[in-house]
Structures are given as structure tokens and as C-alpha cells.
Nucleic acid binder design. Structure first.
Length: 1161
RNA sequence: GCCCGGAUGGCGGAACUGGUAGACGCGCUGGAUUCAAAAUCCAGUAAUGGCAACAUUGUGGGGGUUCGAUUCCCCCUUCGGGCACCA
């Protein structure tokens, strides 16, 4: 009987299905083990041989663990929501729901052919409402939670409300970007809207106005990890910075824990390092520098306060709010020009010109608190508003950028660290002795750091502070194919959907494409409203949405302007890592408030003046102040005439303010209002003129029916009392569903909870997680974050989701190329017709072209030329190679290329038909040889190898074995189909231990010692190697074993049966078949793994390698129990050794029992 | 620029805590079988010299520690990955 893998594999795959062999039960007395693969997203192009690598490894490992007596959870699912799936649908002009379903089906068929032991009953698909119901539920928990810094955990927002109403927020140590203090009485007096606004800045899932990564091409915002080098990770489209109102997850609250808990994880160093870098913790200090001219302080962040005596200037980010305040009139133009220059530069331009030194002097001077020196304050784009306080103290002696800046602007440089003792030491080494540094002089850097920090805190001019680079995760996507965010709006205030209303279903839409202006597809849906109490929220009856309601982004500007700006304005990120900001030192708080007031005074004054005059002078019209029109609060409005009067602030940078005003005007006009604007200056200086203009406008307008009676509720209030509310129109990002899917596998069908307590208690966490490195800072960080959050809220019992992580390397493809003749020079003598523009593409076999170029010999080209050119006399045409004799080689489909790099020309020319003229020049023997190159496997490179083909030709078991045999799992390596013959031969050789033709060879004879030794060596090695994930050496071991047993002609059941079980995790189909042939009952998967027994390996003697001076000279067999003293005599008696010693006595004799003998002469 | 990980025959790779470098497989060479080919089997295969026994060299390069280094330490070259004006 032959090894008929096709029949065998079909037979056992059917058997497994029929017998539910891989069903996993949660109720078990066995210890649990959880093996997880990173679930795939369905890409549409199917699997190539690289994809299953990790799945095969995890399959082997989980089968092995089952054999070892564990109850193993090994599930599989599909990550179906998100950008890739949606982009694929758009490209193919179909609906993502359809393409996803198709791709999932195809994916499962492909996986099924490989023979994995997944329990498909536990399948999780992220776009399934039964699943995303709970994704939405977790989002709601985040929304309803805040981070208590005191206890270092997330808590219910209800608790926070309780504290606010009894104590105010002074005693709350929270992660928040809310910057003001209030008492319990103040809280209780706040309006609902104000309360919600405050709470929003405490929630872990929050809506806030911030600079985001906007990708116009994809029509959505992206999280930081989805952007690489100023382009989107998916598709490589340009990404720009844009201020928008967006949903964020406050992952920064967990920065410290995400960092610290890495230590205990069994992940690769590089993986942990990547996460550490991404979190980017740095220790330093906040320090205030006085600005004596303004009676203000400038707050900076530095990691090197020890160098403060070397500070010779300060630098602010160009958009730093304080710049407006401190810029002196004679530098105003310079600063304005510089700001315009900065704004004109794109993110990519900026990144590519990092080394360029630019900046402008504000004219202001600051006071170095330690030297008392007056130092100039500059602005420059190398200081980023988003990190620290957006301001730095510059130490040109020890910081490269500061140094370049100082050199460029001719600023003094004072050395403060003597690194003479440490040649080659850099700033980051923190080595050296302090000089020119007052009381720090003579101290080592590390001591100086401590001393200065203490001094800074003592003098209350700053404090120690830990800073992170990690930013909050942008959560909303202006796309269709994602989980709807379960939030609805009463007016502008977002409220959570009731949990009983989940899932909030993604509505079926025909036109789901994103728009470039950022309007989410769901906004186009008129029925996208929430009617409380109705079963299907998104189908709730609703009136058509107003234009405003379609524009989710417009309202935030308003909120931001209301907040006012305190300066220096720390970023929200900064506030999260410094929750106690508003309750911190009184002095800094006072400074902030003072500065904020200063900035707003101008604007408020103008408004106050105008209001006074309107009330007194325009009595014929009813004008309201600060009245809400939908979500806009107009400065002044006359409702009956539909006229809005606005006084422009100078809150933002000019360009931004204009943009904001323009937008506001547009929205109000959409509502039928006319908008007239005045600037602060106009109002203050020409008040009469302004009032007159308003009066004229109001008088001139024809009388209209009143928009509202004076006593009716404002539109805002009406919205809140209405029947249906608009729903959030952005959807969740792709990583939402993947941030907790590993938990759902524990209890996938539960419709009462995201997982049951029992299931969670039993399975707990993932013991082994296998996947690619590309998720290092995305998925793996978000999943850890969600796990910690759920832990805080008492829903899971482990702080970390993935104990051990193994990253499979990439399997690259070996592309094939046909060399093409490139530059040629024609030297024509005499009269010849010759049109070189008609040159054909000339493909030349590898060896031929290489030889020709080496010898500069072009004679072989002549026949091709004669065929394609009209020339009267080719003797007069000379052809020479130009500068690039080989043109860009043409990519050839690897399936047309043999193991010897020979191209199947007949099939290939079919693909060349529409390429115009071409000519193929082969080797002399008629073969055409390609050049080859290792590249990433991809369709466009024509180097994709499909696992279906391999399985069809060699079988799934051979395919599995070969994938493992290629090399270490974590290493990236090229796929070479040729090598599979070796594994294929092995499988047949294995089969021949059991069968010769139709004769079943297995007998019941007792095994010899030698056979048992071989077997137990294999048992030991396989067990060890599986545990340390060295599967390639496992395959070698099996090969050695089968070779040995073949040599022994061993067909003994006692040996072969064990071998079959050992092999079962690797080649499950053939193992099942042979197990059955040996008359065993049931599936081999349930059998205990063979135990290693030392006694079969005990040797009495060992053949010692004997070296002289470390060089191997001979081998001598000695008994292992030989007495120590006898060894030397025995060895020295050897003829070979005698020869090498040349009669001299050895200086030293080293004897390592069971290992080696070394003699030093 | 900074951080992390690599570099071993013609190729993929092995050598686990320092102890016989090149396991296993591909490829290649020779042989058996065959009318022939495929398939299969046997032998050889790091380089150099030698019929051979054997000798010399050899794990990217240089230096060090050690009786002994692919393995540990220092410097350099180079490839891959990550981060990148983060104060």
C-alpha cells in the first residue's frame, strides 16, 4: 500500500468533524492551557504559504499540550471590521458585508485543508452583532469610568459624581484634562450641560477637541500607530494634522502600568522594547522661569535640570499661546512671518528637514532662576506643542539641537559638565562633573540631578515630573465598516445608550463610501436616530436631520472657545499624566489663572461694552446674549429678524480663528441666520459706528415671522425633550474588536455577559500567543490596555492578557526575473537604413547575458536585430553596450520557473502577447535561465506560492512538516518549494516502516536495547524542542529516527506506536491512519504523549575527544565510571598522544567526565 | 541620530548552561537499477594540499578572557527591524 495522503487526509478531516474531536469544554478537572493565534482579517486574495506558519506552530503546540494532559483552548476567528475589509470592498465595487462573508468562507476552506485542531464552535467574527454588542458594551464601560490616580485604577463615573457633589473636585486625584477647580456647591449649581462637559474630561472614553491624524484619501482619522512617516499604514496615503472633535480612549492613564507590567511577560526583548519606546517614559522636572516684564512665568519641562546653569536662552513652540502675550512690538512682524512659515510647511516637509535650524526672537527676556541672568526667548518649530509644556530651557552645551540653534543665532554656550574623565560619553550617559554651576560644582551628574531637583522643589519654582510620549488613542473613524459607537446626542451633549439597547446595529447602506470632507457615511442616513424605548434604535422614526446634525465635527470649536485658554496651556496628554494639576501648588495655579484672564480680558471687555450699548440703544428689537442656536451659542442674536452679531476673539492663531469663524458663519446661515461680525478693536474703538450698523441691519430687514416666541424653550432645550435623538455617526476603529476577542473565545455564545465569571475564572489568560511583530504597538498595546481596564472594573482576574508571545517570522518569496537588454549604442558606418526607435524588448538568459557583458560581446544580438530592423547591410552596424547593459529585469511568475531557475518559455510568451515586439535569447542548449531575488511575497511581484497547490501535490502533513522544517519559527526566511522533496521522501520512508506494498510489516517482537535507545533519545529531544519552540530541529530528529529504524529494519509495534504518537502533533492525518492500522481504538489525539525514560540511554562508555592545546587530535573510548586517577595514565598511553607529546610531560591535564579531555603541553 | 536583533558550506539551517563546528534537508558529484527517463537506493560532499592515513585553515573583520570561544567581553564592518526634532 502506498502513502495516499489525499485519501488519508480527507478521511481523517471528516472523522474529526463527525466526532467533534476538537470540541473544547470549559468544565474540566484538567489544568487549562490557552493557545491563541492572532486572528486574521480577510484580505480577499486568500492565503499564501507564509500565512499558515504561525497557525501550524500553534497547532502543533496545542496538540502536544493536549497529549500532555491539558485541557487546551485553541480557537480561531476573523477580524472582519475595519479599513482593509472596507477598502477591499470599495476596490471591487461591492458591499463589505458580502466580500467579507466570501473571504471568510474561502479562508476557512483553506485552513480546513491544513488539518488544524480548532474548535470552530467557538469562532468569533468581529462584525457579528452578537460579538460587537459586547465591544459596544466595553466602550460604554470605558465611557462610564474615570481613572483614580490615588488608587491607580479605573472607577465608576457615578462614584466621581458623588464626590463632586459632596466635596467638589479639589480632593480628586484623577487623570483628566479638566483644568479648573470647583466646590461641591458650585458643582451642584452647574447646569446639566456643564456637568456633562466636565465629566467628559474625566471619562476614559471621551469626546474632545484635539489635533488628529486626518487622512483625506481614506476619509478618516487614524490613531498614531496607524501612521508611518506621515503616511497611512494602509495604502500609504498622506496624513495631515487637523483639529477635530473626536472620540479618544484615555490609554495614557495606563502608561505606567503598561510599562511596568512588561517585565513579567515572556515576550521577546525587541517586542518589549518597541512597547517601551512607544510609551516613552522620561523623568525630569517642570520648572518656572520668570518673565519679569510681564509679571508672568514660563513653565518648561526638562529631563536635565542639572544643566540649568548652562541655560542661555528659551524656546517656545510657535503655536504656544504665550507667544501672543510676550512678543514685543518690534519683533511682532518677525514672529508673525515665522509662524506663517511654520504653518505653510507640511508634516512631511518638516520631518524630512529635521536638521534645518529655523526660529525667531520674540523680544522677550526670561530670568534664569539660578544664575539670575536675563536670557532671550525664541520660538522654533523644533519645540513641539504636543510634548511637555511646549516650551524648553535650552542648554547649548549639552543638547545637539540647542547647540545648532545657538550657533545659528550666535547665542552664548556655557559648558556645565566636564566629561574629561569619560572620553566619548554623551549627554545621555549622564556622566561627568558639574562645572560653572554654582552650588552643583564638583558633583557627579547623577548627584547633581538629585540636588537640583531638591532645590527646585524647596524653592517652589518647579517639581519633579514623569512624562510619557504615549498619546491618547483616537477612537472614532469617519467610515462605515465598523462598530457603531453607542452614543446619542441631546443637543450637543453626548449620552450613552442604555446597555439593554445593545447591540446598536450597523445599518445596511448602499452608499457607504467615505467622503473627503470628513462626513461619516452614517451621517447620510436620515434614520440614524435613537428613539428611547424602541427595539431597533437605528430604525427609530425621526425627522430629517438638519445640516448641522450631519456635521459631527462643528460643535467642538464652540466648546473649546468656552473653556477659555489658560496659558501656558498644557496639552491634554500632559494633563493625563499629571492628574493633580489643578490641585497642585497654589502658585502655579494662580499663575495659570492670571494668564488666562489676561488673554480673555480683551474679548470679554468688548462684549461687555457692546451689550451695554445694545440694551440701551436698540430697544426696538429683542436681542439675546449668549443664546443657543442648535449647538451654537451666538454672542448676540435677534431671533425675530434672524440676525446674529458676533464679536471675534483672538483665541486661536489667526488662520485657525478665521477657519473657525467661517465655518460658524456657514452653519448659522444654513439655519437662515444672517451673521455680522466685528472685531474686538472695532467694538472698543468705534462703538458708535458698530451699534449704528447693527441697528441699520435690523431695521432694514423685512419683518419675518418670529422664529420662536420669547417664552418658548431654546432649540437646545427642545432637542433634549424631543422624541428621537441623533446618534453618533463615527464608527469604531479596526482595533476595537481585536482588543478583547481573546476573552470572548472563553465563552463565545454568552448573550448575558461578554464572558461568564466561570469561563473567565477557568481560562483566565492566554498562555501562548502567536502572531506577527507588526502588531507590536497597535493591537498588543490596546489589548493590554483593555484587559487592565476590565481588571480594574472587576470583570477579569488577570492584569495581563498574554503571558507568552512568540512572533513568527515572515516567509518571503523568491522572485524570478528575465534579464532584459538595456542601453545599447549603435555605430553605423556607411549608408544603412536603421530606425533604432523600433527596438524590440530583448530578453536574454542569465548566463548568456552575464558572459556577454563581461566580454563586451554583442554578437549574439545580431540575429534579433536582423529580424526586427530593416537594414541593408548589417556589417555596417556595430552594437555596443551602453552604461546600463541590463535594463530593469522583467518580473516572471514563479510558477513558470523550474527548480533550476529555468523558465518555461512557451507558457511565458503567452503573457507577453500584448507587449509589442520582443525577442528571447536562450542559452546555447535552449534553456532560458532567470535571475532570482528574495522579496516579500505579494501578488504584484508574481512570487506568491499558494498552499492549496502544495497540499494538492504533497499533502497537508508534508506541507505542515516542511513549513516547520524551513527554519526557526521567529526568523524570516525564503520559501523554496524545491526543498519540500526532502520532507516528502521522509514521509514515504516513514510509511515504509509500516507497509511494503500491501504487506503490513508491524510485528509484536520485543525491541532491542539499541532500538529503545533511539526511541527514547527521540522522545527526550522532541519534548524539549517543542517546549522551546524549536520545531525545525524536531523534524530533523524525526528524520534521523526514521533513518535509524530503517537501518535496523525495525517494524516493531512497541517502537513504532510510540513514534506515531510523537509525530501526531506535527502530521496528524498520517498519525491517525497509522494508529488505526495498528489496531488501536479511537483518535490518536487523546493518547498520552510518550514518556522519556533515562534508563534506556545509560551508557557504560564514552568516546572522548582528546585535544592537545585545544586542538582535536584523537578519540579514546573510556568507561564512564572510570576512576579519576586512571584517566591520565590511560590517555597518555595512547600512541597518537605520545606522538604529539614528543616525550615531554604534559603541563596540564583537563578531564571533563562525559565531555572532553584536553592536554596542555 | 537613537534603540533592538542578526551575520556559520553552493542554499535553508544545526550545535540548548563555553567542551568533537557544519546535525537534518536541498543542491551537486559518482555509482546501482532501467532499452531510456522519472522514481528509488548506495557512496561522497567546508576549503586547501595529499592516492591515503593525515596536515593546515575555517563560524562577517580585529583584539581580549580561557586549558578550550560560533557561544563571554571590547572595537569595527554589514544586513534586517523599530523609533525619530519627545527637551
Amino acid at each position: 500500500m502506498e502513502y495516499k495522503f489525499t485519501d488519508i487526509e480527507k478521511k481523517w478531516q471528516d472523522y474529526w468533524k463527525k466526532n467533534n474531536t476538537y470540541k473544547v469544554e470549559t468544565n474540566s478537572s484538567k489544568p487549562k492551557y490557552y493557545v491563541l493565534d492572532m486572528f486574521p482579517y480577510p484580505s480577499g486574495s486568500g492565503l499564501h504559504v507564509g500565512h499558515p506558519l504561525g497557525y501550524i506552530a500553534s497547532d502543533i503546540f496545542s496538540r502536544y499540550k493536549k497529549h500532555c494532559g491539558f485541557n487546551v483552548l485553541h480557537p480561531m476567528g476573523i477580524d472582519a471590521f475595519g479599513l482593509p475589509a472596507e477598502q477591499y470592498a470599495i476596490q471591487t465595487g461591492r458591499h463589505p458585508a458580502d466580500t467579507t462573508a466570501e473571504n471568510v468562507q474561502r479562508f476557512k476552506t483553506q485552513l480546513g485543508a491544513i488539518g488544524f485542531n480548532y474548535d470552530w464552535d467557538r469562532e468569533v467574527i468581529t462584525c457579528d452583532p452578537n460579538y460587537y454588542k459586547w465591544t459596544q458594551w466595553i466602550f460604554l464601560q470605558l465611557f462610564k469610568s474615570w481613572y483614580n490616580k490615588e488608587k491607580d485604577k479605573a472607577e465608576s463615573i457615578d462614584e466621581l459624581v458623588k464626590i463632586f457633589s459632596t466635596e467638589g473636585n479639589m480632593s480628586v486625584n484623577a487623570v483628566t484634562d479638566y483644568e479648573f477647580a470647583f466646590s461641591e456647591d458650585e458643582w451642584n449649581d452647574f447646569e446639566e450641560k456643564k456637568k456633562q462637559e466636565i465629566l467628559m474630561s474625566y471619562r476614559l472614553a471621551s469626546l474632545s477637541y484635539a489635533e488628529v491624524n486626518w487622512c483625506p484619501e481614506l476619509g478618516t482619522v487614524l490613531a498614531n500607530d496607524e501612521v508611518k512617516d506621515g503616511r497611512s499604514e494602509r495604502g500609504g496615503h498622506p496624513v495631515v494634522k487637523k483639529k477635530m472633535r473626536q472620540w479618544f480612549l484615555r490609554i495614557t492613564a495606563y502608561a505606567e502600568r503598561l510599562l511596568n507590567d512588561l517585565d513579567a511577560l515572556a515576550w521577546s526583548d525587541s517586542m518589549k522594547e518597541m512597547q517601551r519606546n512607544w510609551i516613552g517614559r522620561s523623568e525630569g522636572a517642570l520648572v518656572f522661569f520668570d518673565l519679569p516684564e510681564f509679571n508672568m512665568q514660563l513653565e518648561i519641562y526638562t529631563t536635565r535640570p542639572d544643566t540649568i546653569f548652562g541655560v542661555t536662552f528659551m524656546v517656545l513652540a510657535p503655536e504656544h499661546p504665550l507667544v501672543d502675550v510676550i512678543t514685543s512690538p518690534d519683533h511682532a512682524q518677525e514672529v508673525l512671518d515665522y509662524r506663517n512659515y511654520v504653518q505653510s510647511r507640511s508634516e512631511r516637509e518638516r520631518q524630512s528637514e529635521v536638521k534645518k535650524v529655523t526660529g525667531a526672537f520674540t523680544g522677550a527676556l526670561a530670568l534664569n532662576p539660578f544664575t539670575g541672568e536675563k536670557i532671550p526667548v525664541f520660538i522654533s518649530e523644533y519645540v513641539l506643542m504636543g510634548y511637555g509644556t511646549g516650551a524648553i530651557m535650552a542648554v547649548p552645551s549639552d543638547d545637539d539641537r540647542d547647540n545648532a540653534f545657538a550657533t545659528h543665532f550666535n547665542l552664548p554656550i556655557i559648558d556645565v559638565i566636564d566629561k574629561g574623565m569619560y572620553p566619548g560619553a554623551t549627554r545621555d550617559d549622564k556622566l561627568g562633573k558639574m562645572i560653572n554651576s554654582g552650588f552643583l560644582n564638583g558633583m557627579e551628574v547623577l548627584d547633581a540631578l538629585d540636588a537640583i531637583n531638591t532645590e527646585i522643589e524647596k524653592r517652589e519654582i518647579g517639581k519633579r515630573r514623569v512624562q510619557y510620549r504615549l498619546r491618547d488613542a483616537i477612537f472614532g473613524r469617519q467610515r462605515y465598516w465598523g462598530e457603531p459607537i453607542p452614543i446619542y446626542y441631546k443637543g450637543e451633549v453626548p449620552y450613552p445608550l442604555d446597555e439593554s439597547e445593545l447591540p446598536l446595529l450597523l445599518p445596511q447602506m448602499e452608499d457607504f463610501k467615505p467622503s473627503e470632507d470628513g462626513e461619516p457615511p452614517l451621517a447620510k442616513l436620515e434614520s440614524w436616530k435613537y428613539a428611547p424605548g424602541k427595539a431597533s434604535p437605528h430604525r427609530g422614526e425621526a425627522s430629517p436631520p438638519t445640516p448641522l446634525q450631519r456635521r459631527g465635527e462643528s460643535e467642538q470649536s464652540h466648546v473649546a472657545s468656552q473653556k477659555g485658554i489658560a496659558s501656558p496651556r498644557p496639552s491634554p496628554e500632559e494633563r493625563e499624566s499629571e492628574p493633580g494639576y489643578h490641585t497642585s501648588e497654589k502658585k502655579s495655579w494662580e499663575t495659570l489663572k492670571e494668564q488666562g484672564r489676561e488673554l480673555r480680558k480683551n474679548q470679554t471687555e468688548a462684549e461687555e461694552v457692546l451689550w451695554e450699548r445694545i440694551r440701551n440703544n436698540i430697544i426696538s428689537h429683542k436681542i439675546r446674549r449668549q443664546h443657543a442656536i442648535d449647538i451654537f451659542i451666538a454672542d448676540f442674536v435677534c431671533l425675530s429678524k434672524k440676525v446674529v452679531i458676533e464679536v471675534d476673539g483672538g483665541v486661536y492663531l489667526d488662520a485657525e480663528q478665521k477657519e473657525y469663524d467661517k465655518h460658524r458663519t456657514y452653519e448659522l446661515e444654513q439655519r437662515g441666520f444672517e451673521v455680522i461680525r466685528f472685531t474686538n478693536d472695532e467694538v472698543k474703538k468705534n462703538t458708535d459706528e458698530v451699534v449704528a450698523k447693527i441697528k441699520t441691519k435690523l431695521d432694514s430687514k423685512p419683518t419675518m415671522e418670529e422664529y420662536n416666541s420669547p417664552d418658548s424653550p431654546s432649540p437646545l432645550e427642545r432637542g433634549a425633550g424631543g422624541e428621537a435623538f441623533r446618534l453618533e455617526t463615527t464608527t469604531m476603529p479596526g482595533w476595537a474588536g481585536s482588543s478583547w476577542y481573546f476573552l470572548r473565545y472563553m465563552d463565545p455564545l454568552n448573550d448575558k455577559a461578554f464572558i461568564s465569571k466561570e469561563a473567565e475564572q477557568y481560562w483566565q489568560d492566554v498562555d501562548l500567543y502567536i502572531g506577527g511583530t507588526e502588531h507590536a504597538v497597535g493591537h498588543l498595546l490596546y489589548a493590554r490596555f483593555w484587559q487592565k481596564f476590565l481588571f480594574d472594573r472587576g470583570y477579569v482576574s488577570k492584569v495581563e492578557p498574554f503571558k507568552r508571545l512568540v512572533n513568527q517570522g515572515m516567509i518571503t518569496g523568491v522572485s524570478a526575473f528575465a534579464n532584459k537588454i538595456g542601453d545599447l549604442e549603435y555605430v553605423i558606418t556607411g549608408e544603412t537604413e536603421f530606425d533604432s526607435n523600433k527596438r524590440p524588448q530583448i530578453f536574454v538568459s542569465k548566463n548568456k547575458i552575464e558572459k556577454a557583458i563581461k566580454e563586451r560581446d554583442t554578437a549574439f544580438l545580431l540575429p534579433a536585430f536582423k529580424k526586427h530592423f530593416q537594414a541593408t547591410d548589417f556589417n555596417k552596424v556595430q552594437i555596443k553596450f551602453g552604461d546600463t547593459p541590463i535594463a530593469k529585469p522583467k518580473q516572471v511568475n514563479v510558477s513558470l520557473v523550474s527548480s533550476k531557475d529555468e523558465l518555461d518559455i512557451n507558457d511565458w510568451v503567452k503573457t507577453l502577447q500584448d507587449e509589442g515586439h520582443y525577442e528571447i535569447i536562450t542559452e546555447d542548449d535552449g534553456a532560458f535561465i532567470c535571475t532570482r531575488e528574495v522579496e516579500k511575497m505579494s501578488k504584484s511581484k508574481l512570487n506568491v506560492v499558494n498552499p492549496d497547490d502544495i497540499i494538492g501535490q504533497y499533502g497537508a502533513d508534508t506541507f505542515r512538516m516542511y513549513e516547520m522544517f524551513l527554519g526557526p519559527i521567529e526568523q524570516s526566511k525564503p520559501w523554496n518549494t524545491n526543498g519540500i522533496d526532502g520532507v516528502s521522501k521522509f514521509m514515504r520512508k516513514l510509511w515504509r516502516l509500516f507497509y511494503e506494498d500491501t504487506k503490513f510489516l508491524v510485528n509484536d517482537e520485543a525491541p532491542t536495547d539499541q532500538e529503545l535507545k533511539v526511541l527514547h533519545k527521540v522522545i527526550k529531544k522532541i519534548r524539549e524542542d517543542i517546549e522551546r519552540f524549536s520545531f525545525n530541529t524536531c523534524i530533523s530528529t524525526f528524520m534521523v529516527c526514521v533513518n535509524d529504524l530503517t537501518d535496523f529494519k525495525c517494524h516493531k509495534k512497541a517502537v513504532l506506536q510510540e513514534l506515531v504518537v510523537l509525530l501526531a502533533p506535527f502530521a496528524p492525518h498520517v498519525a491517525e491512519e497509522l494508529w488505526e492500522q495498528m489496531k488501536n481504538e479511537g483518535s490518536v489525539t487523546a493518547v498520552a504523549y510518550p514518556e522519556f525514560n533515562q534508563k534506556y540511554l545509560v551508557e557504560s562508555a564514552f568516546e572522548y575527544p582528546v585535544s592537545i592545546n585545544g586542538k582535536l587530535r584523537t578519540k579514546i573510548e573510556l568507561a564512564l565510571n572510570i576512576e579519576q586517577g586512571k584517566v591520565e595514565a590511560e590517555v597518555l598511553a595512547s600512541e597518537v598522544i605520545q606522538k604529539w607529546l614528543e616525550g615531554k610531560p604534559p603541563k596540564k591535564f583537563i578531564y571533563v567526565p562525559g565531555k572532553i579531555i584536553n592536554i596542555v603541553v
